[in-house]
């Protein structure tokens, strides 16, 4: 456990400068926008005088220089304060934390689906390279890999919600259903099926292809020949010796795809009208709420860092070679 903790601390510390770069870069990107949140707010009010604008800018600290505001932002961030959302008239952190669970549920389920089913089908394909099943899965996964997630979402809605009426078309749960406990969980699960498939299928295809390629590579390794020389059952060779090794790069890929998946959930949440973190980004853009958009980007960076920390821990648990010295020489 000690080894894992050290790993986490090292990774967490090295993330701080990277996060600072994200904050600074995003800050100056949004800084260069013409018109700030106050302008947007006044437009939404239907206009206002210069006096009001000046007062508002003072309240939100928008009258100070860019660098001093960046400094204020970073020092507030260190206290987990992301500022005030003009559009929602609430602390940004509250708005984000309210939306985050839906997105985490969506992403977590999509990741689980993609990873479990993808690696499983990858094992099926890679167990007998060149077989009919292998070729079918290979072509199928490539086709799936080319399907845009938002369009897949629409097609799924059309088929399974509009035509077959198996699943609801939108939302995260039935509105004012009064359900609680288990019934509510089932209701949410039913709402999640289609968005999870729409978001997860691309990654399912990706993991399938990686697993299949990884297994083909490992078939050629000496230790597989050694396992065959031991006369082990084919099943054991495939699962224990080959798949176990081929799984490792998939875990790394899981970390690399975390950011892309978070980005993908923006569109999926829009298609399925899920009040999540990604849809919040779109709302922030629509309301020209720059501090909120900034908060969303910073938060997503933190989220990606955290996911990668978890991935590192998982990898260390799966690969005995990581972070360990020679026991004896």
């Amino acid at each position: 456990m000690h080894r894992a903790l050290k790993l986490v601390r090292r990774r967490a510390l090295s993330s701080i400068p990277v996060l600072l770069i994200v904050v600074t870069g995003t800050f100056f990107l949004l800084e260069s926008a013409t018109g700030d949140a106050v302008d947007a707010y006044l437009v939404s009010l239907g206009g206002g005088d210069a006096e009001l604008a000046r007062n508002l800018r003072e309240t939100y600290g928008l009258d100070q220089s860019a660098w001093s505001r960046l400094w204020l932002y970073v020092s507030a961030l260190a206290r987990f304060d992301l500022g005030w959302s003009v559009a929602f008239n609430r602390p940004i952190l509250d708005v984000i934390l309210e939306r985050l669970p839906n997105t985490l549920l969506l992403m977590g389920s999509a990741t689980a689906l993609a990873f479990l089913l993808g690696s499983l089908l990858g094992i099926v394909a890679g167990a007998r390279p060149g077989s009919g099943v292998d070729r079918l899965l290979s072509v199928g996964s490539l086709a799936l890999y080319a399907v845009p997630s938002f369009w897949l979402g629409l097609v799924l809605i059309l088929l399974f919600a509009v035509q077959l009426r198996w699943f609801p078309t939108a939302g995260i749960e039935s509105i004012a259903s009064g359900k609680s406990g288990f019934d509510r969980a089932v209701d949410i699960a039913r709402h999640l099926v289609l968005p999870v498939c729409a978001l997860g299928f691309i990654y399912l295809a990706l993991f399938l292809r990686m697993m299949r390629a990884g297994m083909a590579e490992i078939w050629r390794q000496d230790f597989v020949l050694a396992a065959r020389a031991k006369g082990l059952a084919r099943r054991r060779i495939v699962l224990r010796h080959i798949a176990r090794n081929a799984l490792l790069p998939l875990v790394t890929m899981l970390g690399l795809q975390a950011a892309a998946m978070l980005g993908g959930s923006v569109v999926i949440e829009s298609v399925f009208a899920i009040p999540g973190f990604g849809r919040l980004a779109q709302e922030a853009v629509a309301a020209r709420d720059a501090p909120l958009l900034m908060g969303i980007i910073v938060m997503s960076a933190i989220l990606v860092i955290l996911v990668n920390l978890l991935i590192d821990l998982a990898y260390a648990a799966l690969d005995p070679r990581v972070g360990q010295g020679e026991r004896r020489t």
């Binding site: 390794q221 000496d222 230790f223 020949l225 050694a226 396992a227 020389a229 031991k230 010796h241 176990r244 090794n245 490792l248 799966l318 690969d319 005995p320 070679r321």
Partner: peptide, 13 residues
Amino acid sequence: YVFQDPGSSLNPV
């Protein structure tokens, strides 16, 4: 059967 290179004939994980 004993192979030439034990570095690759043993499964690392």
